[in-house]
């Protein structure tokens, strides 16, 4: 299956990942992305029926941590890199729920 990367698809992707693509860049970015996607689409032709997917490069054993709590971070460390904070919490524009 081939897929053309047009402005509408680009917008969908940008919305999903919270990026703003200025109108004047949309066509060129769609072209760049489309070129890569088209070239990479050839991968679909590699026969992989019955092949396991591998999310890791090597087999990895399960690692479990003992349930021992550590001291929590000091408040100044928690918010030390935050642009806005108040009363130890991170401050964001008011969220409208629902």
């Amino acid at each position: 299956m081939t897929l053309e990367v047009d402005r509408s698809l680009l917008q969908t992707l940008a919305d999903l990942t919270r990026l703003h693509i200025p109108a004047e860049q949309q066509d060129s970015l769609a072209r760049r992305l489309g070129g890569v996607v088209e070239a990479f689409s050839a991968l679909a032709a590699v026969p992989t029926a019955g092949v396991d997917a591998s999310p890791y490069p090597l087999p990895l054993p399960t690692v479990l941590r003992a349930d021992v709590p550590e001291a929590p971070l000091a408040p100044d460390i928690v918010t030390g890199n935050a642009a806005r904070s108040a009363a130890g919490a991170f401050l964001v524009p008011r969220v409208i729920d629902g």
Partner: peptide, 19 residues
């Protein structure tokens, strides 16, 4: 490894991982 428990003041039960 941040402790779970009575929640207390904001962000007083957090570790780097939770941030």
């Amino acid at each position: 490894p941040a402790p779970v428990g009575a929640l207390g003041d904001p962000n007083t039960r957090v570790h780097f991982v939770d941030l």
